[in-house]
Amino acid sequence: MSKRWVSLRRLRQLGMLGMNCRNVDFINRYNDRKLFPLVDNKLKTKLLAQEYDVPTPSLRCVVREQHEISHIERQLADMDSFALKPAKGSGGKGIVVVIGRKGDDFVRSSGALLSLADIRRHMSNILAGLYSLGGASDVAIVEDLVAFDDCFSGYSYEGVPDIRIIVFQGYPVMAMLRLATHASDGKANLHQGAVGVGLSLDDGRCLNAVQFSKSVKTHPDTERSLSDIQVPGWRDILVLAAQCCDMTGLGYIGTDLVLDKALGPQLLELNARPGLSIQVANGRGLLPRLRHIEGLTGRRRLSPEQRVDYCMRHFVAVGGQSQPGIL
């Protein structure tokens, strides 16, 4: 039986992080405003990642000016599949994933066809700032499409499954796998209807899964059981996430990673204001873990690998149940 409301006491007991608390106690305190552009602008993130040797899908071209759009077909000519994104887009807005060609048209991940004119109009919208915060003018970036790993086949519908890891002070504190669904239109955003699968930090196992804030056991489109999920190469993924903190200097970030068939974990984008739904997917609150890290001494001396090992040891969840004493 699903209730309509949860009691305040229960939220406190679970250590759920609320939006106000996140903004005041974590984002405002640990994220320096002047560093925000590094993550709000995907182009900057990408260039920064290349500098730090953090693997990320390679950049194919950047469209900065309106006039470049008129001969964009030359740039796109040798690309069968690509992702077109606004550099300053938020919440997955404005991302077009092209997986192939059909004559002169482009095939979207959803199977819909886009003409070259559609692509041009979309780019022009991106440049005008339609998808950027506050309508600031933007640039469009075209990058390689990730050939996502087969381990998730049957788990994601029309989209790339990505792994969201919250990294606090360089320590990965919570992780979830986001699976696109038909309802989410191939996007991996939970509020749009993607399935969120909470992942255990020690081995990348499924803890719990939700869609639209309700528990689910199977993927709604493919009917595959979600509890079987175990992400391969888990430690490498966590290390990659932990590196992102050193790279940006931001204390509280959400890292979005994907698993490429050939290249392994890739950094897709960073978020300086990561959402709160990851807690629902994990069935536990972030606060105890965040406070625990805040209380650590000498936490800055450790390397990303050491920090990951620390988290893998300490933030162990037992079966998706939250128990007292376990962070």
Partner: peptide
């Protein structure tokens, strides 16, 4: 109110799935 770090009223609904665990 700018310093309020408690839950929003809507969060009691947003996190309602937490009650089932």
């Amino acid at each position: 109110m700018g310093q309020y770090t408690g839950y929003k009223l809507t969060e009691l609904r947003r996190f309602r799935a937490m009650d089932e665990l």
